[in-house]
Amino acid sequence: MTSPRTSASPNFVTRINRALTLERIITSTTARLLLVFGLVALAGCATPPPDDDPEGKAEFEQVNDPLEPANRWVFGFNDIADTYLLRPAAEGYRAVTPEFGRQRVSDFLDNLKTPIYLMNDMLQGNVTLAGSTMERFLLNSSFGVLGLMDVATPFGIPGHSSDFGQTLGSWGIDEGPYLVLPLFGPSNPRDAVGLAVDSYADPVDYYLQNNHMHWVSWTRLGASALSQREAYLDALDDAKRTSLDFYSTMRSLYRQRRKAQIDQAGAAP
């Protein structure tokens, strides 16, 4: 470290060192988290019904949740985080922002996701939807003032969302066992991979990271979480209030909704 050659560029060395330390912290945290969730998953495998109960067995297979005990554990954790953080934040957002304003935020965030929608429309081989995604982007970014107003919907070009989980599904890849992800909620291996691919492939995020606008990227993530949670306030409250078992209701809602989205993606030309 004290050699004259390295002192010529101390800035560079410090930066490398800092990056390495940061990377080590991140990897070790991720590894630890993975280990914890792995152990929970191992300890928490559901016992399938015995052979003399064919209807129970069929139900077990249909529910597709062999990791149910582990999933319920993560679901409980998410529910606490939601009850004390996300839901109150979404309620506060609703209280201080009029419906008109919230719709502008949601339209704006949706317009920023155009590259992801377009990429997946094309990967699904859906030329018609890819075209309407492009048309929506052009209309909403110009006449809709940078995407603040969804003017394309009244024009007869309604919005849709396409993600990589859907794309994998439309390619015939099975959902795999039901999975509740920490903080992200209901998912499965296919959709979890989709989530990762979509977030890595997002050019908007690339641009922000490369230009050291991390705070914009975090703000966008926070605003999306808030806006989406607000949109689901009534539906989730309703599901929680009226269901006997909130966990299985959410599982059923998620799996049906994803299946419908993928069937729709596969059915269109």
Binding site: V63, D245, S248, T249, R251, S252, L253, A260, D263
Partner: peptide, 20 residues
Amino acid sequence: AEGVSMAITLRSDYASTMQA
């Protein structure tokens, strides 16, 4: 509603409660 059937969701809810 948007691909989600009320009857199927309820059946899943009640089946899970029965199983538990």
